[in-house]
Design a protein around this nucleic acid. Structure first.
Length: 655
DNA sequence: GTAGGGTTAATG
DNA sequence: CATTAACCCTAC
């Protein structure tokens, strides 16, 4: 926000460009939501999530936008009871929390707020009832419906349905979840109208034909067409446009500075961003999407690579770029970690420790679940899993049933242009398996379920411990974005060379979880296979280290009585295993894993939250916890929590 | 609202 | 049983 004044002036190109990208993708996400293209929406939100971790020129409306995205992500997944954003809560309950935050930060008419709350609660009831989750429905009735005065009638109806265990009723049939989504979108849009992003404006003003859509008064200032059809902006025109826009968007860099930077870059790379964007576009207007996604993402990435202070990263971003486009879809991904592990070890082992498995479903952008299919899954494993499941089932029968649902969009399309990271494709998703084949297919881009046991407990623990002691420095929490290091390290033992070469890791946070992708350089199946194994191992370990703490997985989760509570950490991490940075959960938009039943108890801090905290302290100074809290999209964190966390971070020398 | 000591609970 | 991150309580 504005506070960084002192330092602000020296914004890096990455910060600025990330801001533009941020604005752009938020805008696109909202457009996608509006068009009911929820798959695209999740893709865009994932991009936004990953952007936020990088240095960004924070703007006053950034928080607002993030909150809106958080809210809509939760709404978007509200009909998936197995997903969670904040540990014990269903997505819609999380939406209620975010709504509170929104109302706190912005002025929302009380009536409007109530209306929205009511709509969310009722929808949640409907969702629970429809899916036969009567117990949960009952909880909702008790906890949320209590104060709803005017809904007495509905409350009664719901009560009776719960009592009679009926999941079909005219009322339930009537309500349409998609209408509800759009209603929530309307609410958000009434509250905050997102202006046309800078990048789009630039593109539009450059005369790019595809840019259309959004309403914006087009000032066709200086735009000239070239004979070739190419559009070219005169420098003067560009400068003018830039002046206007930079003011409006709070860009603090002067045009000439930018120009200089570009020139520099130009020397190294052939085309500086603006050029790229402007020139590319015109070239093939038709074939390319209006917004040259590639360009943008590419820009971002490049930036990233340049700026990233973490040395190790350097390579990855570039690579990613390269691969990102087309490969993202690559069907062959890595096998879910679990698999490999399990195969390696005797089933019995696997099972034993885990008594309560939890199911975690994560939404991974482009994860393809299909992997599992191929992965040769040893039957033994399956069986063991099933057994586990059964056990688990006893605990909460509810959650299990639905393993995976399609993502909203349903489309499996993997390719997401947007997310380069996804390119890596391999996010392995883990799924628990129940019926693999079918599900896997459905899920395409969605989630995964993981079971805890997948990994052997012992190894994990040990690794974790080490992590604590030895590497705080690297611990995921520590510094933000550096991802690879740890993984590399961890991995080293097992596979050094190949790993480095083949796997690019990006971690994107996913919502709740971190998604990390590793991309095998060569998708060839054989190689892949190898990777898999490797990664598997890796992942298990890295998982632990990395953010294990962050993961909320299941710490408190399992309610199962008496059972072994030991494992609480889910391993739903991805194959790549590194999920260092992110914690899983809670990411801004993504959901995490299965719910554990009970109350949320302790919420581990995610890397992202820690980053926000660090940034907040940097900006406002330690001690201004409340201010920091309100300046970042924390959910369910109090100022005291921030203070305590800061204390812990100091203790660990994470800062 | 914040600081700091005490408590809780997960983990090994 | 020891360690420790997250949480709680209380004084200011």
């Amino acid at each position: 926000m504005g506070e960084s004044v002192g330092e602000a002036r020296s914004l890096s190109d990455e910060q600025i460009i990330n801001r533009w990208s941020f604005d752009y993708y938020v805008f696109k996400a909202l457009s996608a939501f509006r068009d009911a293209d929820y798959t695209a929406f999740t893709h865009f939100t994932s991009i936004v999530e990953s952007l936020v971790v990088r240095p960004v020129d924070g703007h006053s409306d950034m928080i607002v936008k993030l909150r809106c995205m958080q809210f809509l992500s939760r709404i978007n997944n509200g009909d998936k009871l197995d997903l969670t954003f904040e540990e014990p809560k269903t997505p819609l309950e999380s939406a209620l929390s975010v709504l509170e935050d929104i109302c706190r930060d912005m002025s929302v008419p009380p009536r409007e707020k109530e209306r929205v709350q009511q709509a969310i609660i009722e929808t949640l009831m409907v969702v629970c009832l429809r899916s036969g989750e009567f117990t949960r429905a009952e909880e909702v009735l008790l906890t949320h419906f209590s104060d709803a005065a005017d809904s007495a009638g509905k409350r009664k109806l719901f009560e009776s349905l719960v009592r009679r265990r009926r999941s079909s009723h005219s009322v339930l049939q009537l309500s349409s979840y998609s209408d509800f989504k759009q209603d929530m979108l309307d609410f958000i849009e009434r509250l905050y109208r997102v202006p046309e992003p800078f990048l789009l404006q630039m593109l539009r003003r450059s005369g790019h034909p595809g840019v259309s859509s959004e309403p914006v008064t087009s000032s066709s200032q200086e735009r000239q067409k070239d004979h070739g059809g190419a559009v070219r902006l005169s420098l003067r025109g560009l400068r003018q446009v830039y002046g206007v826009l930079s003011e409006r968007y709070g860009v603090s860099v002067s045009f000439s500075q930018l120009q200089q930077e570009l020139e520099h870059q130009d020397e190294q790379e052939q085309s500086p961003e603006l050029h790229l964007a402007l020139s590319e576009t015109p070239r093939d207007p038709e074939s390319q999407p209006p917004y040259a996604g590639m360009t943008i993402s590419r820009l971002v990435q490049e930036d990233d690579s340049q700026l990233s202070d973490q040395g190790q990263d350097t390579r990855s971003p570039h690579r990613i770029l390269v691969t990102s486009g087309p490969e993202s879809d690559e069907p062959e991904l890595q096998t879910p970690v679990t698999r490999s592990h399990s195969s390696g070890r005797s089933p019995a082992q696997t099972c034993s420790p885990a008594r309560h498995t939890q199911k975690h479903i994560r939404m991974v952008l482009s994860s393809d679940v299909e992997l599992e299919d191929h992965a040769a899954s040893p039957p033994s494993r399956c069986s063991s899993r099933q057994q586990q499941k059964k056990k688990k089932k006893s605990d909460h029968s509810e959650s299990e049933c639905v393993l995976m649902e399609e993502e909203d969009g349903g489309s499996a399309q993997v390719s997401s242009p947007a997310r380069p990271s996804s390119s890596s494709s391999s996010p392995a998703v883990r799924r628990s398996a129940r019926d693999t084949p079918r599900q896997s297919r459905m899920v395409l881009s969605s989630d995964v379920e993981l079971e805890d046991h997948a990994v052997s407990p012992p190894s994990r623990r040990s690794s974790r411990k080490q992590q604590k002691k030895s590497d705080h420095s690297e611990s995921a929490l520590v510094s933000s974005p550096a991802r690879p290091r740890r993984s590399d390290r961890d991995t080293q033992n097992q596979s050094q060379s190949s790993e480095s070469e083949c796997v690019v890791e990006l971690e994107v946070k996913d919502g709740g979880s971190c998604i990390q992708h590793s991309t095998p350089a060569r998708p060839s199946s054989t190689d892949t296979q190898r990777h898999r194994n490797r990664s598997v191992t890796v992942s298990s370990e890295s998982e632990e280290h990395s953010e294990s703490p962050a993961v909320k997985t299941s710490r408190r989760s399992s309610p199962s009585p008496g059972g072994a509570h030991k494992r609480r950490r889910a391993r739903w991490q991805d194959v790549s295993g590194t999920h260092e940075n992110w914690s899983d959960e809670e990411s801004l938009f993504s959901s995490t894993s299965g719910r554990s039943s009970k109350k949320s108890s302790r919420k581990m801090w995610t890397v992202q939250e820690s980053e926000w905290l660090k940034e907040g302290v940097r900006r406002f100074g330690a001690g201004h916890w409340e201010k920091i809290r309100s300046s970042f999209p924390f959910t369910e964190r109090t100022a005291v929590n921030l203070k305590d966390r800061w204390r812990t971070m100091l203790k660990l020398r994470l800062v």
